[in-house]
Amino acid sequence: MPVPSLEDFMARAYAMELEANERYAQFAEQLDTHNNREVAQMFRKLAAVEALHAKRILEEMGWPSMPALPPAYAWETLEAPETAAFDELHYLMQPMHALEIALKCEQQAQKYFEDIAAGDVPPAVKQAALEMADEEREHVQLIRDWMKRVPQPRPNWDEDPDPPRVTE
């Protein structure tokens, strides 16, 4: 995982936050369409957090508002470490499920930065990676606290008395 410069590292971090933000926004949209407003709202909040994080990276680097396209990195995972997989969504999912998804993403992000920091990288990258890992650790804690405030999903939460509908 060669990360040759601070610019390169921050671009990755930016891409990661941006993709996480977009995915949460997509999830919010999907659940809105499927009338699960409560969890949609939750994903919107998570999207906002990631957007903020991305914005901070731009500010720190003194980059103009937005690069035209985030550089396409070949992540070692299928998608960026902080991006939730599409198939983790369920139309009847409960807030706790959303937070479980978020927790996993933050943990993956934390590990990603820790791994970079532990690698053979320039000191500036190491420093930045450790800071990012710390931030993600804070997020992990934040999510854990949040999880204490939402109810446990009721048993059989994914049961639907009606069968799927035929649409075409």
Partner: peptide, 27 residues
Amino acid sequence: PMLAPKDFKSDYKPVWCPGCGDYSVLS
């Protein structure tokens, strides 16, 4: 000006089930 992926996405919301792979193919 280069267009971003979102410029190719309409504001009409998909009706696919949440979790469906097709969201990802659209993306």
